[in-house]
Design a protein around this nucleic acid. Sequence first.
RNA 1: GAGGGAAUGGCGGAACAGGCAGACGCAUCGGACUUAAAAUCCGAAGCCGCAAGGCAUGGGGGUUCGAUCCCCCCUUCCCUCACCA
Length: 869
Amino acid sequence: MPVRAMSQDAVSANQYVPQSFEARHRVRWEEAGLHKAKGPASGKPKYYVLDMFPYPSGSGLHVGHALGYVGTDIVSRKKRMEGFDVLHPMGWDAFGLPAEQYAIQTGRHPRSTTDENTANFRRQLQNIGLSYDWSREIDTSHASYYKHTQKLFKVLYEQGLAYRAEVPVWWCEELKTVLANEEVINGRSERGNYPCVRRPLKQWMLKITAYADRLLADLELLDWPESIKVQQREWIGRSEGASVRFRLEAGGEVEVYTTRPDTLWGATFMVLAPEHPLVAQLTTPAQRAAVEAYALAAKSKSELERTELAKDKTGVATGAYALNPLLDPNDPRARIPIWIADYVLWGYGTGAIMAVPGHDERDFEFAQKFGLAVREVVRPPQGTKGLADGECFSGEGTALHSGPLDGLTTSAAKAKAIELLVAQGCGAKKVTYKLRDWLFSRQRYWGEPFPLIHLEDGTVVLLPDDALPVLLPDMDDFKPSQDGSAPLARAKEWVETRDPRTGATARRDTDTMPGWAGSCWYWLRFMDTANTAQPFSAEAETYWGPVDLYVGGASHAVMHLLYARFWHKVFYDAGLVHTKEPFQKLFNQGMVTAYAYEDATGRLVASDEVETKGEAWVRKGTGEPLQQIVTKMAKSLKNVVNPDDIIAEYGCDTFRLYEMFMGPLADSKPWNTRDIPGCRRFLERLWRVCVDEKSTDSVRPNLLTATTGELQGESLQLERSLAKALVRVEESFTHFNFNVAIAAFMSFVNDATKAPQAVTRSQAQRLLAALSPFAPHIAEELWQRLGADGLCAAQAWPKPDMRYAVDDEIDLPVQVNGKLRATPKAPKDADKAGLEAVARAAVAAHLEGKEILKVVIVPGRLVNFVIKG
RNA sequence: GAGGGAAUGGCGGAACAGGCAGACGCAUCGGACUUAAAAUCCGAAGCCGCAAGGCAUGGGGGUUCGAUCCCCCCUUCCCUCACCA
């Protein structure tokens, strides 16, 4: 429903019709090169504002995606007005599974669908009036880009960080590809939610674990949300402990990892992961059948089953025994049974643990279930429950029943235990990480080919830079083969090649890089997109790096941000970049949610099948009552809102304002189309403050000439109002709560609406300049109508005049016993005595005949009388 | 289970980070303009109460002259990780 009926005469030259000028001003900005990043020659300080670039999906952008983009656009525009050389680019993370899945279903080449999708994204972004430097647009799936991705992979390879290994990998039968650990959730693919199984396959791996410590430590250098840092720390999962070698009674030994070496005297059994290679050797004949059955069952269990059944421990004894290395072999406590159980993970530590049921919840549960011994070796602090109360105590306390450790605190006991282990030659201090090396190959078509060849003798040879890019061969069938080999294996002519240096016959690698590869360095490419010879020049990197502000969703907390940091650090070591970290400040925009509706059974009902009935919502036709809920925007819920539709109806500036007016950028908040007209009305009021719609003048006459002399009367009042608004606008940039800035603009315009003839030309100019990052088109249009010099978007950022930001008189809240009783006027800078006098007079009735115990006076704030009774 | 974040009118949200709770906007109601409506403008409005006044920032306690803000306990919601020895 349009805001107003657009009859022919309504579209007069003097009404606010954004569609009539928004596109025109975009052309003017473009022609002025306003959004072009100039680079080192600009002579200006730089500012690099980056959005997490999108995967160009077929469904296009919705209003939630636009949130962060509008936010960074406002920052970029303001920074330019403040005299910075701003780099604010956009591009496409265009390799990836969905395009390929779509290609398999429809037979359309991913190249053409990707091009269509990026064209649509670009059109949508431009429609929002975002001030990207489009001359720097990149597409990770173009050879001109992935040529450099291949070069940078070589850097990793040359640093010894890329290797091939036969590893058990997640295989997704439906997608016919391997997936990285983090792409599999509870045994199902993150994308598509298909079941996955573990399978051994020879794969490319990147040694991210070599950087674990630095990835952890350098988080301290970053201005990032604490929650993201926490997630990264947990993902890296550093723990300090000890490796301990237990001798086997039957010969040989098993190494375990523990973070509690101080509890060694409390180890009453040992548990190996079912996949542990020693299991087969050490199992006694009597137990062999049971152990093999258990191991087989564990293997076929999905990760989901293994975790869902977490509460119920399972396991089988192997019949073998190990000897505690720090106890006398004749001590009956030294001999402990070895079990296998799937609560011990083969992928972490050594895949074997010493179980201390007295002081580890999981071991305790296992011991309870299988009737194994429990021994107390840590006394809990006073008042904490422990084994004496029938509970497991896993905290820190004092060692007991532990020979030489007795009486030591947990931390001292740990150190002592390690000392003893080292002295005995059966253990050492050890640091362990949850982070694993990164599985870096996929059996897919739509990704970067590896820049290397395999010789007949199995040697891997990197291709020289002049042999790059290794182009993706043109294919029309992208299906993976039944045996799991990659589609590229079918491009026989492509696969069979020669070593460019020796001419020896060779085969290309038929795997491609994962979807993350392109985004592991794209912020560097943006610095120097015209460079065809190198990924980026040292000169460009020195000037632009690091990214000053990086904005995107919190969903990339771990994977993208960890991978990107890893590559950046490798480049740092290789001397390619001058900063240790790529993204100095990170900001997560909140999620835009939307209303959805569910019926009595909790089933979702599409928004277009819902209508309001009084205060309630009902299903169209049937009148069945529905419940309104707030969820994420999703196609399946039919509650997705497309920015194109909003812009067509209300104009781009209204759309931008509403996106920001909803709430602070970081918050998650519901989209409510009903609220949009409020932002549109604000712009119309602003328009009428500047333009008399009934006349044919381009602006009101009072705005045509500069006011001279002291401001008086309404003009002075408006000056105060403007100064206050500008203060709030300025403050909104520290927390990205632009909703407050917009509210401040509204307040000023409301004031100005009451006396439009009192607005001075200077006030109008400062207002428009300050508004222009938020609503750039109307600001530019009115600027032009004012006949002011240059582009509004190129003006210096207006600073508030603090002389006008405070009123001469304040409303002084006067409380009696903390309750507000009056708010008389008081001079702004009255002293305590003056304030008390004003206050006493104002609440004389309340003080009558009462004993005043205390008077609290906060200058500029309030007065509080504390009275008796 | 662990960690992180949050809870303020009918709704989205403000509030110098201890000092007038509810800015700004939506929805609502009244008035002006209009033949009428839309649009616009002016105004009302947290809740209870005719009023005086009382009650109010998820619930309960505490510190303070004064608490949305600080401390303790509890409830609910969102996000992340989830047997990591």
